[in-house]
Every structure is written in structure tokens, then in C-alpha cells.
Design a protein around this nucleic acid. Sequence first.
DNA 1: GTTGTGACTACCA
DNA 2: ATGGTAGCCACAA
Length: 103
Amino acid sequence: MPGSSLREIIYQIVASVPTGKVACYGQIAGLAGYPNHARYVGTTLRTLPSDSTLPWFRIINGKGEITFPVGSPSFERQAALLEAEGVRISGNRVSLKKYKWQP
DNA sequence: GTTGTGACTACCA
DNA sequence: ATGGTAGCCACAA
């Protein structure tokens, strides 16, 4: 599909994660068709405007943890948003199974 | 056209 | 179990 850059695909995948679930960077990249671009997923989300409605906070790293250091402003915001959706957080660890893609 | 970078992951000591 | 290193590739300057 011409015109759809990897960034647009990432937006779609992230937006498709249901409320109350989380997904990891590698999974997002894999669903987009680029298994090796886990890093770029983060880079893309990093450049998101603060007024974006994209659920970037549902994206965590492959260990099931928040990618930010504990105590960081970004960490606290992400943790608060996740808890608001019913996701339990222990330290930097997210105690909830990852979102499984439904083909 | 090149160069540097990264909200990562996998592997090895 | 933890900690460090290497590899990966799209994007911005």
C-alpha cells in the first residue's frame, strides 16, 4: 500500500489494542510486518504529540515492564493511565497478560 | 548522497 | 538469577 509508512501502520496497531490490555514493542512491530523494528515503535511513540488520543501507554517492553525508570514523570503518567483502565502495576512490572492478536 | 540515533530484543558471561 | 554487549533498520538532519 503506497502512502502508508511504517509510522502510520504503527498508529493503527496501537489504536487497535483494546482497553485494559497491553502489548509489547516487538509484537506491535511484528503485527506491522517488521519484526525487527521494535525500537522504531518506541521512537515513533516518543514523537507523539501530547494531545494525541493514541493509547501509547498500553505499549510496554518485552519483559512486561514499563520502559521508563520508576519515578520518572512519563512512568507515573503511564502507570496512572493503565491503572485507570484496571491494569495493576507492581513497581515497573505490569501484572496483566499481554494483548493477544486476533486475526 | 551520508551519518547518527533510538519508549527494543536476543544472546552470552 | 542479573548485567553488559551486539544487532537490527527506518527516519531526521
